[in-house]
Amino acid sequence: MAAEHHSPLEQFRVEHIGGNLSLGGYDISFNNSALWMLIAVAAITVFMLVGIRKQAVVPGRWQALVEFLYDFVANMLKENVGNEGRKYFPWVFSIFMFVLFCNLFGLLPNSFTVTSHIIVTFALALMVFIIVTAIGFIRHGLHFLSFFVPKGAPAWLLPLMIPIEIISYFIRPMSLSVRLFANMVAGHVMLVVLGSFVLPLGLAGAYISGIVPVAAITAIIGLEFLIACLQAYVFTILTCIYLNDAVHMNH
């Protein structure tokens, strides 16, 4: 682990592609992270458009998958926010698909996991936080501030409760982003660490013992697919829950 190029974190290195670009003094060079974001966007669009191109009344497999994803997010939004949530559907759907595809593409060999970068997940979570807060203020005006006053709490507890509520509200983007980031990093580090065991173990014990970490990797890849989908689901459902708080304020 001492040598930097053998570190399990090497896979998360951002590498520039092409020349340096800058905008207003900030570096905006194209890199592998940006490449995989755009690949995800293109893949989502192609996947959805090709799946729905026949517009069949009785869907084939692909169309059924597209419709399943649509219904899945739509139902999630409806169950958590209700009918007022319909106009936020494209936004929530974009979040879900973006996180899902970035997670899944991260599992391809030699790919780059966009969501394993804290800055990306934090930017997404901050976007959710800002938009949700803005929706709360637009719908309820300054009355939205009463969200931080817990209902039914005795008055003498309020000086304690209100700061706790405010902190727990502002910690939301942190927990949302760190959850996704940590899940992705942990899974990928685990895969690389296990992968680094294959050769030493195989050389140490008559080649056959190298099978053990390979089997473990195989199992963990399956788990990682589950985690990739699950984390996209969790990110989206928490977005829906926060949205419900802002829309209905039923704390």
Binding site: V178, R179, F181, V185, L230, Y233
Partner: peptide
Amino acid sequence: MMLTFALVEATGLIAFVVAMLILF
């Protein structure tokens, strides 16, 4: 359960992140 699984697991993963931060 799956939602709660993710929430519970996140706690452990935050510890993992702390360990990673300490190391790297």
